[in-house]
Simulated assay, not measured.
Amino acid sequence: MSDTDVNEMSFEQAMAELEQVLGQLERGDVALDESIALYERGALLKKRCETKLNEAEEKVAAITTDSDGNPTGLKPVEGL
């Protein structure tokens, strides 16, 4: 388990660590206290991945296209 702040991780970093956490929990070869810590870390990593995916979806949704489907720019994001 990494000591890196989850909020500073890229999607790829968070997903890789989440896979490691899940692997450890699935094997069941860790003590109860460590399992709880892993579960908590996994929940934070899952939330980070969801946040980064939502951000990416919003960026894709903001891409405007012309009548031929070619990208022409970005729509302004509301609230910014």
Results as ranks from 00 to 15, higher is better:
M1C: 07
M1W: 07
S2M: 07
S2R: 12
S2V: 09
S2K: 13
D3L: 12
T4F: 08
T4G: 01
T4N: 10
D5F: 10
N7S: 14
E8K: 15
E8F: 09
E8Y: 08
M9W: 06
S10Q: 05
F11R: 15
F11P: 00
E12Y: 13
Q13E: 15
Q13K: 13
A14K: 05
A14D: 02
A14W: 03
M15C: 02
M15W: 11
A16G: 03
E17K: 06
E17T: 05
L18Y: 12
E19S: 12
Q20K: 10
V21Y: 04
L22D: 14
L22I: 08
Q24F: 09
L25F: 02
L25A: 04
L25R: 07
L25M: 03
E26I: 07
R27D: 14
R27P: 00
G28K: 06
D29V: 10
V30A: 10
V30T: 11
V30Q: 11
A31W: 02
L32F: 12
S35W: 03
I36V: 15
Y39M: 13
R41E: 05
R41L: 11
G42Q: 03
L45Y: 05
K46Y: 11
K46L: 11
K46P: 00
C49Q: 07
E50D: 15
E50S: 09
K52P: 01
K52D: 01
K52E: 14
K52W: 02
N54M: 10
A56P: 01
A56Q: 10
E57R: 13
E57T: 10
E57I: 14
E58M: 11
K59G: 01
K59P: 00
V60H: 03
A61I: 04
A61V: 01
A61E: 10
I63F: 06
I63R: 06
T64R: 12
T64C: 04
T65Q: 08
D66I: 06
D66W: 05
D66H: 02
D66K: 04
S67L: 10
S67Y: 05
D68V: 09
N70L: 11
N70S: 07
N70Y: 06
P71S: 05
P71F: 04
T72I: 14
T72A: 01
T72L: 04
L74W: 08
K75F: 01
P76W: 03
P76F: 04
P76A: 06
V77Q: 15
E78F: 13
L80W: 11
